[in-house]
């Protein structure tokens, strides 16, 4: 028994470490932003173009998205004119106001996966090449397995060399079956077979891998659309989730990806991967603002349990807390504190 206890403990400890890594990483960003903005406000006594320019740069450095930043700064400009603000220090409350608005859009968004008991849940994974679709599927399979669900994987990446083997290795690690064809087979056929198998084996969750594809390749996007249609036809209201896997290091192009994949595969959520690096994936804020697609999970490493549920408020707070004026920060501190501990419990 003690062996199992030990095992449990190490697992718990590990995931705590991961959570720590996540919050550490974000707090680093936050500190940096606090410092930069404080410094900015102090240095500029008068508000001029250079001031705005520097503010833009601070925001853009997090890949927040040029449009989102420009809109924000333009609004600030007109506020400055309207309220006749001259001192940079006086601008800070206005700035926080705007940033809080940015947060508000996100409050009602659901970050849980649409998984229901007593039915076959189908999740389709899409994205460009090399963002970590297969790895994310492995991690998610592990997560569902831990929750006691019966999981099946569909090896829909029939294009890239050894992609099927890669998914099989994950299947072995996690202990779930993989439905596969040969390399070069029609992905829609693989998915069709997987759905049939999932039905007859009474599986709870079917995770469908697809080949990475650049969103401007019309033919490949058509192929993806076919996979999507097959799922729709075989199971009513499937796929229950279409997850766009996004690499946190990606810049403005992530917006184009979200748009294109949204169009041909009806993306319902995003998994932001590789957030354990120095990139912060700020572009998801722009995607959220413009396209209303929520981030559901974040990937923080290459191990099985390196997948964490995403807390949007926390994310935006972490990115922008420094820009939010002291007063409002105090008010939010309690709520942030609780959400933080919630997060750690998970």
């Amino acid at each position: 028994m003690s062996f199992f206890k030990k095992l449990r403990e190490t697992i718990v400890k590990k995931s705590e470490e991961v959570t720590q890594k996540f919050t550490d990483g974000l707090s680093k960003t936050r500190d940096l932003l606090v410092e930069k903005v404080d410094d900015l406000v102090r240095r500029y006594k008068k508000i001029d173009e250079d001031f705005f320019e520097e503010l833009e740069e601070i925001l853009i450095a997090a890949d927040v998205g040029v449009n989102t930043v420009m809109e924000l700064v333009d609004e600030l400009r007109s506020e400055v004119r309207k309220r006749k603000i001259e001192n940079a220090l006086d601008l800070q409350p206005v700035l926080s106001e705007k940033l809080v608005e940015l947060l508000k859009n996100n409050e009602d968004q659901n970050c849980k996966l649409n998984i229901e008991e007593g039915r076959l849940n189908i999740i389709l994974f899409v994205g460009v090449n090399g963002v970590g679709k297969t790895t994310t599927i492995g991690k998610m399979a592990h997560m569902f397995k831990q929750e006691g669900r019966k999981v099946l994987l569909a090896a829909g990446d029939t294009f890239r060399a050894a992609a099927i083997e890669q998914l099989e290795v994950w299947g072995d690690r996690v202990g779930v079956d993989v439905v596969k064809h040969q390399q070069g087979a029609d992905p829609a056929a693989v998915i069709f077979d997987a759905v049939q198998a999932a039905k007859s084996r009474k599986v709870d969750v079917l995770l469908c891998d697809t080949a990475g594809r650049l969103q401007n390749k019309v033919n490949l996007m058509e192929e993806l659309n076919k996979v999507f249609r097959v799922l729709q036809r075989e199971v009513p209201d499937a796929p229950h989730e279409v997850i766009l896997v996004l690499d946190a290091t990606t810049g403005q192009n992530a917006m184009a990806q979200a748009k294109a994949f949204g169009k041909s595969a009806g993306v319902t959520g995003i998994v932001l991967t590789k957030l354990d690096g120095t990139a912060k994936g700020g572009i998801v804020i722009a995607i959220r603002n413009e396209l209303d697609i929520p981030v559901k999970y974040v990937g923080l490493g290459e191990k099985m349990d390196d997948l964490q549920p995403f807390d949007p408020e926390q994310f935006v707070h972490a990115l922008f807390a420094g820009l939010i004026a002291k007063e409002s920060e105090e008010a939010e501190e309690d709520s942030e504190g609780t959400s933080q501990s919630d997060f750690e419990q998970k």
């Binding site: 450095a61 290091t249 690096g277």
Partner: peptide, 8 residues
């Protein structure tokens, strides 16, 4: 990756 953002 050509799509890399500011972090490049």
């Amino acid at each position: 990756d050509a799509m890399t953002g500011q972090d490049a």
